[in-house]
Amino acid sequence: MTSNSTGRFLPALRDSDAWHKFKGSPLTIGAAIIALLMISSALLSPLIAPHDPFDPRAIDLMNSLIPPAWHEDGQSSFLLGTDDQGRDLLSAILYGTRTSIIVGFVSVGAAVLLGLVAGLLAGYLGGFIDGFIMRVVDIQMTFPSIMVALLIDGISRSLLPREQHDQLALVVIILALSLSIWPQVARTVRASTMVEKNREYVQAARVIGRPAGIIMVKHILPNVMGPVLVIATINFGVAILGEATLSFLGVGIPASEPSLGTLIRIGNNFLFSGERWIVLYPGLTLALLVLAINLLGDWLRDVLDPKLR
């Protein structure tokens, strides 16, 4: 059964427009390779990182501010140099990218889930429910994500003791990011749902007697996933940037834990004192990762959006 379906799936994939477009665009192939490389090395960071930036015993202040290996004063054991606390920058970047990617995945995932439910309900049921959900979306969209994050951070800071707050930093940041992304998903899903619900296959399901919930999940959901996938990919990049921004501002991940944003924040202090590698390499990593993801998002949009074909 399984071998049969994969046996049919592979040639179908090789024949599809998606694969054809992918093959024909070196930019997309490059983006895919870079994204895959960065994501897999970030997720495997505990295994492949040369040092453990979380282990206080492995950190030696004597090693602080060592430049990258190819500089005169560089050491081969710290390939990209170290920061002011003596942490290996390469390891910190790997761990930091992992944090960024986890934040991106979870916040976009939560936003898509919320946006799908809200959009499907608003688009399919219409009337008062539609009006209510869309006004909530409108209100949500008037708050910049940074303000939402500051608000949540402020509330959690005043309610929780400091240690607990630091532990919950990741949750706060994910909450803030998904709150700022879900309205976009909800709007897109609502628009697509309103188109799909007037198609005759939905009416056929209603004539059979299917209740609204099943029609939404079984019939409409699979048909609105295309645009959602595109929005999710592009917002994955936005979320990673958002995490970096918030951490840079000191609202997000505490400075003791590496994330791309905190690294850039630390590096910012040394930007004009010569140790610019601390900000340069995390910054480059962030730019490259977001660029690769956005290019993949563009490809996905070209493949899935029939209007652009």
Binding site: R199, Y201, A204, H219, P222
Partner: peptide
Amino acid sequence: FQDPYSSLNPRM
């Protein structure tokens, strides 16, 4: 239904 192109769910 009238339109054979929209009366069947394309994902099923």
